[in-house]
Protein backbone atom coordinates (compact mmCIF):
# COMPACT_ATOMS: atom_id res chain seq x y z
CA UNK A 1 0.00 0.00 0.00
CA UNK A 2 1.82 3.12 -1.20
CA UNK A 3 -0.51 5.89 -0.26
CA UNK A 4 0.11 8.95 1.84
CA UNK A 5 -2.93 10.24 3.64
CA UNK A 6 -3.43 13.96 3.34
CA UNK A 7 -5.92 15.85 5.45
CA UNK A 8 -4.50 19.28 4.54
CA UNK A 9 -7.62 20.13 2.56
CA UNK A 10 -9.55 20.38 5.82
CA UNK A 11 -8.00 23.80 6.39
CA UNK A 12 -9.50 25.12 3.20
CA UNK A 13 -12.76 23.21 2.98
CA UNK A 14 -14.10 23.13 6.53
CA UNK A 15 -16.76 25.78 5.75
CA UNK A 16 -18.13 23.48 3.03
CA UNK A 17 -18.42 20.66 5.55
CA UNK A 18 -20.01 22.99 8.07
CA UNK A 19 -22.65 24.09 5.59
CA UNK A 20 -23.34 20.44 4.75
CA UNK A 21 -23.75 19.62 8.44
CA UNK A 22 -26.20 22.51 8.74
CA UNK A 23 -28.38 21.18 5.93
CA UNK A 24 -28.28 17.61 7.27
CA UNK A 25 -29.27 18.83 10.73
CA UNK A 26 -32.06 20.98 9.30
CA UNK A 27 -33.39 18.08 7.22
CA UNK A 28 -33.32 15.84 10.28
CA UNK A 29 -35.12 18.37 12.50
CA UNK A 30 -37.87 19.10 9.98
CA UNK A 31 -38.13 15.45 8.96
CA UNK A 32 -38.14 14.31 12.58
CA UNK A 33 -40.81 16.69 13.88
CA UNK A 34 -43.15 16.49 10.88
CA UNK A 35 -42.46 12.79 10.36
CA UNK A 36 -43.38 11.89 13.93
CA UNK A 37 -46.51 14.06 13.67
CA UNK A 38 -47.52 12.27 10.48
CA UNK A 39 -46.75 8.97 12.19
CA UNK A 40 -49.05 9.86 15.11
CA UNK A 41 -51.85 10.84 12.74
CA UNK A 42 -51.48 7.62 10.74
CA UNK A 43 -51.24 5.48 13.88
CA UNK A 44 -54.48 7.05 15.12
CA UNK A 45 -56.11 6.37 11.75
CA UNK A 46 -54.97 2.76 11.68
CA UNK A 47 -55.76 1.90 15.28
CA UNK A 48 -58.86 4.00 16.05
CA UNK A 49 -59.79 5.88 12.88
CA UNK A 50 -62.83 5.46 10.63
CA UNK A 51 -63.08 2.25 8.62
CA UNK A 52 -62.64 3.82 5.20
CA UNK A 53 -59.37 5.50 6.23
CA UNK A 54 -57.62 2.36 7.45
CA UNK A 55 -56.93 0.64 4.10
CA UNK A 56 -55.59 3.91 2.66
CA UNK A 57 -53.15 4.38 5.51
CA UNK A 58 -52.19 0.69 5.43
CA UNK A 59 -51.43 0.95 1.70
CA UNK A 60 -49.29 4.05 2.28
CA UNK A 61 -47.36 2.42 5.12
CA UNK A 62 -46.73 -0.82 3.23
CA UNK A 63 -45.73 1.02 0.05
CA UNK A 64 -43.15 3.16 1.86
CA UNK A 65 -41.78 0.41 4.07
CA UNK A 66 -41.20 -1.92 1.14
CA UNK A 67 -39.42 0.45 -1.26
CA UNK A 68 -35.98 2.05 -0.94
CA UNK A 69 -35.72 5.66 0.26
CA UNK A 70 -33.63 6.50 -2.81
CA UNK A 71 -36.47 5.52 -5.15
CA UNK A 72 -39.01 7.48 -3.08
CA UNK A 73 -36.72 10.46 -3.41
CA UNK A 74 -36.32 10.05 -7.17
CA UNK A 75 -40.04 9.55 -7.61
CA UNK A 76 -40.83 12.75 -5.71
CA UNK A 77 -38.12 14.85 -7.31
CA UNK A 78 -38.10 13.54 -10.90
CA UNK A 79 -41.47 11.82 -11.19
CA UNK A 80 -43.95 14.21 -9.59
CA UNK A 81 -43.23 17.15 -11.93
CA UNK A 82 -45.02 15.06 -14.58
CA UNK A 83 -48.17 15.67 -12.50
CA UNK A 84 -47.34 19.35 -12.28
CA UNK A 85 -45.98 19.13 -8.72
CA UNK A 86 -42.64 20.88 -8.78
CA UNK A 87 -40.35 21.54 -5.87
CA UNK A 88 -36.71 22.34 -5.29
CA UNK A 89 -34.27 19.72 -4.09
CA UNK A 90 -34.48 20.68 -0.42
CA UNK A 91 -38.28 20.60 -0.40
CA UNK A 92 -38.22 17.23 -2.16
CA UNK A 93 -35.65 15.91 0.34
CA UNK A 94 -37.73 17.16 3.27
CA UNK A 95 -40.93 15.72 1.88
CA UNK A 96 -39.30 12.33 1.23
CA UNK A 97 -37.95 12.18 4.77
CA UNK A 98 -41.29 13.15 6.31
CA UNK A 99 -43.17 10.56 4.24
CA UNK A 100 -40.56 7.91 5.05
CA UNK A 101 -40.46 8.52 8.80
CA UNK A 102 -44.26 8.90 8.83
CA UNK A 103 -44.72 5.33 7.61
CA UNK A 104 -42.20 3.74 9.99
CA UNK A 105 -43.35 5.95 12.85
CA UNK A 106 -46.95 4.89 12.20
CA UNK A 107 -46.09 1.23 12.72
CA UNK A 108 -44.05 1.89 15.85
CA UNK A 109 -46.61 4.22 17.45
CA UNK A 110 -49.48 1.92 16.53
CA UNK A 111 -47.75 -0.90 18.38
CA UNK A 112 -47.60 1.39 21.42
CA UNK A 113 -51.28 2.33 21.11
CA UNK A 114 -52.38 -1.28 20.73
CA UNK A 115 -50.47 -2.23 23.86
CA UNK A 116 -52.77 0.09 25.83
CA UNK A 117 -55.20 -2.01 27.89
CA UNK A 118 -58.82 -1.57 26.80
CA UNK A 119 -59.83 -0.57 30.30
CA UNK A 120 -57.83 2.66 29.90
CA UNK A 121 -60.22 3.92 27.19
CA UNK A 122 -63.19 3.16 29.41
CA UNK A 123 -61.51 4.66 32.46
CA UNK A 124 -60.86 7.85 30.50
CA UNK A 125 -64.50 8.01 29.38
CA UNK A 126 -65.80 7.34 32.89
CA UNK A 127 -63.76 10.28 34.20
CA UNK A 128 -65.75 12.50 31.83
CA UNK A 129 -62.85 13.12 29.46
CA UNK A 130 -63.67 13.88 25.85
CA UNK A 131 -62.53 11.50 23.13
CA UNK A 132 -59.71 13.84 22.18
CA UNK A 133 -58.62 14.27 25.80
CA UNK A 134 -58.70 10.51 26.31
CA UNK A 135 -56.66 9.96 23.16
CA UNK A 136 -54.08 12.57 24.10
CA UNK A 137 -53.61 11.96 27.83
CA UNK A 138 -54.56 8.34 28.30
CA UNK A 139 -53.53 6.70 25.05
CA UNK A 140 -51.02 8.71 23.05
CA UNK A 141 -48.60 10.01 25.68
CA UNK A 142 -48.16 6.64 27.47
CA UNK A 143 -47.93 4.93 24.07
CA UNK A 144 -45.21 7.33 22.94
CA UNK A 145 -43.35 6.82 26.17
CA UNK A 146 -43.51 3.05 25.72
CA UNK A 147 -42.10 3.12 22.20
CA UNK A 148 -39.82 6.15 22.53
CA UNK A 149 -36.57 4.11 22.29
CA UNK A 150 -37.73 2.42 19.07
CA UNK A 151 -38.91 5.72 17.64
CA UNK A 152 -35.59 7.34 18.55
CA UNK A 153 -33.61 4.68 16.67
CA UNK A 154 -35.89 5.13 13.68
CA UNK A 155 -35.21 8.89 13.68
CA UNK A 156 -31.46 8.16 13.77
CA UNK A 157 -31.89 5.72 10.86
CA UNK A 158 -33.73 8.39 8.87
CA UNK A 159 -30.95 10.90 9.62
CA UNK A 160 -28.33 8.45 8.34
CA UNK A 161 -30.53 7.63 5.34
CA UNK A 162 -30.62 11.33 4.47
CA UNK A 163 -27.14 10.83 2.96
CA UNK A 164 -29.01 9.75 -0.17
CA UNK A 165 -30.51 13.23 -0.74
CA UNK A 166 -27.16 14.29 -2.20
CA UNK A 167 -28.29 12.33 -5.26
CA UNK A 168 -30.91 14.96 -6.12
CA UNK A 169 -28.26 17.66 -5.47
CA UNK A 170 -29.57 18.70 -2.06
CA UNK A 171 -26.42 20.17 -0.53
CA UNK A 172 -26.19 18.06 2.61
CA UNK A 173 -23.09 16.63 4.28
CA UNK A 174 -22.65 13.88 1.68
CA UNK A 175 -22.96 16.45 -1.08
CA UNK A 176 -20.17 18.41 0.63
CA UNK A 177 -18.00 15.28 0.69
CA UNK A 178 -18.65 14.65 -3.01
CA UNK A 179 -17.78 18.28 -3.75
CA UNK A 180 -14.56 18.15 -1.76
CA UNK A 181 -13.39 14.89 -3.28
CA UNK A 182 -14.03 16.21 -6.79
CA UNK A 183 -11.88 19.27 -6.02
CA UNK A 184 -9.07 17.66 -4.05
CA UNK A 185 -9.05 14.11 -5.44
CA UNK A 186 -8.73 13.00 -1.81
CA UNK A 187 -11.76 10.73 -1.98
CA UNK A 188 -10.92 8.37 0.86
CA UNK A 189 -9.98 11.12 3.28
CA UNK A 190 -13.04 13.20 2.41
CA UNK A 191 -15.44 10.31 2.97
CA UNK A 192 -13.55 9.18 6.06
CA UNK A 193 -13.90 12.57 7.74
CA UNK A 194 -17.54 12.79 6.67
CA UNK A 195 -18.25 9.33 8.07
CA UNK A 196 -16.78 10.39 11.42
CA UNK A 197 -19.00 13.48 11.39
CA UNK A 198 -22.06 11.32 10.72
CA UNK A 199 -21.05 9.04 13.59
CA UNK A 200 -20.78 12.04 15.90
CA UNK A 201 -24.14 13.37 14.69
CA UNK A 202 -25.76 9.97 15.31
CA UNK A 203 -24.37 9.79 18.86
CA UNK A 204 -25.46 13.38 19.58
CA UNK A 205 -28.92 12.83 18.12
CA UNK A 206 -29.40 9.72 20.24
CA UNK A 207 -28.47 11.67 23.39
CA UNK A 208 -30.72 14.55 22.36
CA UNK A 209 -33.67 12.23 21.84
CA UNK A 210 -33.05 10.62 25.21
CA UNK A 211 -33.16 14.11 26.74
CA UNK A 212 -36.35 14.92 24.84
CA UNK A 213 -37.85 11.71 26.21
CA UNK A 214 -37.04 12.76 29.77
CA UNK A 215 -38.62 16.19 29.29
CA UNK A 216 -41.78 15.02 27.51
CA UNK A 217 -42.45 12.22 29.96
CA UNK A 218 -41.14 13.68 33.21
CA UNK A 219 -43.43 12.26 35.85
CA UNK A 220 -43.50 8.71 34.60
CA UNK A 221 -39.78 8.90 33.98
CA UNK A 222 -39.21 9.94 37.58
CA UNK A 223 -41.49 7.18 38.83
CA UNK A 224 -39.66 4.49 36.89
CA UNK A 225 -36.30 5.82 38.01
CA UNK A 226 -37.42 5.82 41.63
CA UNK A 227 -38.47 2.21 41.40
Amino acid sequence: MHYTFDFGWLLEYWPVLLKGIGITVELTLVGGVLGVSLGVACAWARALGPGWLRPIVTAYVEMIRNTPFLIQLFFIFFGLPALGIRMNELEAANLAMVINLGAYGCEIIRAGIQATPKGQFEAGASLGMSRIQTFWHVILIPALQRIWPALSSQIVIVMLGSAAVSQIAAEDLTFAANFIQSRTFRAFEAYFVTTLIYLALAVLLRQLLRGVGWTIFPRRGAASRAR
Binding site: Y3, S162, A163, A177, Y198
Partner: peptide
Protein backbone atom coordinates in the same frame (compact mmCIF):
# COMPACT_ATOMS: atom_id res chain seq x y z
CA UNK B 1 -21.73 1.12 16.86
CA UNK B 2 -19.71 2.19 13.82
CA UNK B 3 -21.80 0.35 11.23
CA UNK B 4 -25.14 1.31 12.77
CA UNK B 5 -24.05 4.87 13.44
CA UNK B 6 -22.89 5.81 9.95
CA UNK B 7 -24.78 5.95 6.66
CA UNK B 8 -24.62 2.87 4.45
CA UNK B 9 -23.81 5.22 1.58
CA UNK B 10 -20.63 6.37 3.37
CA UNK B 11 -19.66 2.74 3.99
CA UNK B 12 -20.08 2.07 0.29
CA UNK B 13 -17.92 5.07 -0.62
CA UNK B 14 -15.23 4.05 1.88
CA UNK B 15 -15.23 0.45 0.59
CA UNK B 16 -15.03 1.71 -2.98
CA UNK B 17 -12.21 4.19 -2.43
CA UNK B 18 -10.63 2.38 0.52
CA UNK B 19 -10.07 -0.87 -1.38
CA UNK B 20 -8.64 1.27 -4.16
CA UNK B 21 -5.90 2.46 -1.81
CA UNK B 22 -4.35 -1.00 -2.03
CA UNK B 23 -3.67 -0.33 -5.67
Amino acid sequence: EIFQGTPLLMQLFLAFFGLGLFG
